[in-house]
Design a protein around this nucleic acid. Sequence first.
DNA 1: TCGCCACGTCATAGATGTTGGCCATCGGGT
DNA 2: ACCCGATGGCCAACATCTATGACGTGGCGA
Lengths: 386, 386
Amino acid sequence: MANIYDVAKAAEVSPATVSRVLNGGSVSSERAARVRAAAEELGFRPNRVARGLRRQRSDVLALIISDIENPFFTALARGVEDVARASNLSVVLCNADDDPEKEAEYLDVALAEHMAGVVIFPASHAETDVTALLDRGVPVVAVDRSPESATIDTVTADDENGAYAVTRHLLDEGYRRVACITGPRASSAAMVRLRGFLRAHREGEAPRRRPRVAYADFRVRGGYQAMSELLDLAEPPDAVLATNNLMAAGALAALHDRGLRPPEVGVAAFGDTFWSQLVRPALTTVRQPAYEIGQAAAELLLKRRHTPDIEPQRLVLPTRLEIRGSSRRTAATEPTPTAGPAASADAVVGAEQPAGPGQPTGQATGQVRATGRGRLTRPRRPDAMT
Amino acid sequence: MANIYDVAKAAEVSPATVSRVLNGGSVSSERAARVRAAAEELGFRPNRVARGLRRQRSDVLALIISDIENPFFTALARGVEDVARASNLSVVLCNADDDPEKEAEYLDVALAEHMAGVVIFPASHAETDVTALLDRGVPVVAVDRSPESATIDTVTADDENGAYAVTRHLLDEGYRRVACITGPRASSAAMVRLRGFLRAHREGEAPRRRPRVAYADFRVRGGYQAMSELLDLAEPPDAVLATNNLMAAGALAALHDRGLRPPEVGVAAFGDTFWSQLVRPALTTVRQPAYEIGQAAAELLLKRRHTPDIEPQRLVLPTRLEIRGSSRRTAATEPTPTAGPAASADAVVGAEQPAGPGQPTGQATGQVRATGRGRLTRPRRPDAMT
DNA sequence: TCGCCACGTCATAGATGTTGGCCATCGGGT
DNA sequence: ACCCGATGGCCAACATCTATGACGTGGCGA
């Protein structure tokens, strides 16, 4: 492969001139043309390794996430990538698997490769140590959780209010024993969401039972087990909030396996993904602005790359409550089943209502049912919170 | 940050000796100990960029995929990563978004960074050009599709037989007008799956209607549109095979929006993911061994890295038919609606059947199905093909 | 008109951190 | 006494970019 000397020779200039042409120095246009022609001719590509060595930094930034199978991260990755590409940076994804050791390895790699920056979803609040990077001047932005080791730029979703809003929604629907399946205690996100959940219970006029809380691992299997255990209680919950989408999937599976399903049991979850719309009845979710978080993180990174000494920022992005699926409110709080669109909306499929001889008097009951044909748009209430 | 000279000075040896200690040359144990102590003391990490420059190759391999939001790729990535890590290679993920230009950029990066190898899911059969890499001796393994530009190691799933088997399954269930939503004509995987689908039609004793085929883009939206168009036909299909999971999701959404759902309309798909089990009734799927494909690809890469001159291999991994959800056969082939669990079972949620008093006479019909309560394991027929 | 200064353009000479080749040394075995 | 293997130091190469300074030209003042 041609190197810069070959090009210089072909264009009859010095290697430095070739470099200037390619990196924007001042070169007479005639020479520049010669250089460009020669580079094209020889198929010259600057060696990024050599450039990295000389410049002591590369044009690659690392995105270290804890679970590549979680759609939240894939959306996040897109956000990061789109912003990075606009600044001519490549993004590489590193899957740390929630394992602090693996994560430390990748942090090492990022350091040793002189990466342009790191966006990290810290595996652990306590163990994740990014000081080595910071000492070397490599900008680091934390996402969703923030590591203990240093104060750095952080982008999070407004999880507490999201959890609060969705919990209130469940309580308002008439559920009495709302449980929460949350993540490990080490995860600050899990704790923050739990806090919102508990706050909703304290504030409501709902009975003051101490709500059940199960701690799982943010994985499908963990959600399944937690839900199963909750259901085995003497007084099982009648609704559950899962603090991420994978555990929600597990919880749903557990419910299905026992023949229970919404709205008999209410289910809500953090993390909006396309499949949560396909489950019937669809899940009510707290949509996390994953893509936007990624964007914001990348932008913070770029800003800090340019001006390293600004004060670390802490960005909080709003979540959004997406209400889908059936409500239990009618049954629970209203004497007569006026039902109504607000209550059933999307719940067409799974409702337990006896399909008695009562006929499809759709309009009469006010039920907004898919009537068989047509309709692209899904009824969707304007968000309860922005 | 300390470099190798600092360590050498501290240990009172030459830099070369430090290098030998760290990379396994012959060094007396006493000096080696001194070096290690000094390295530890100074927090020395070899500069991977400089090493890469000197050795003309790095310990990073690139995995270029076409859509990070597709769970197939995330599973694949895990397979690649697990194998790579065992050989002390790091894996970076590059999301080419099915855009040949973006892909070419990443290929350039892989080349310019002297990556140890590339596992690629080619965006296009024709446009993807990996010859530059090959010329430089960088091993490249293709996954699922194989590029035209060169004969290289390839790992694919046995898509044709998978498509054949699932199509036969639909026909055997009694569906009469089975359509296929497949990917772009440029995708060899899309074409191969289509071929299996068509073969099943030719062989069956089923009526010889020319089956409908819709070409979409392997995305959710494309699946939605394709399904909608199929349903708008004068003679809409009564079953559909989507050749990937995202389009299946789109197709399901389109069906839901018209109030149709399995088994009224049969739906089967390529690509097994956890959410396909949560949809009720669950999808019958052709499971693609994504993780195993990733593993195999990485292993081929490592093998070729070691011995570059072996003949390019073409590995075909078996798919597996996972039958879930309701069968229409009973309704279609039996005169009286025995209904009961046979017909509903997994279809509990969406079925249109009057929830008549018909009771669980599960064994009577001989169907192996979930009986309503409990049971973690999902009924799963031994695969129709290995 | 000549000389000096300023500025634009370019070449040359490191510098970056590591490793592999080459050679020298030393010790033990034959 | 000779040879061989183990050990370890020195030098150069990897490909690029930056710093330094040289060179030429043009403008302006004397």
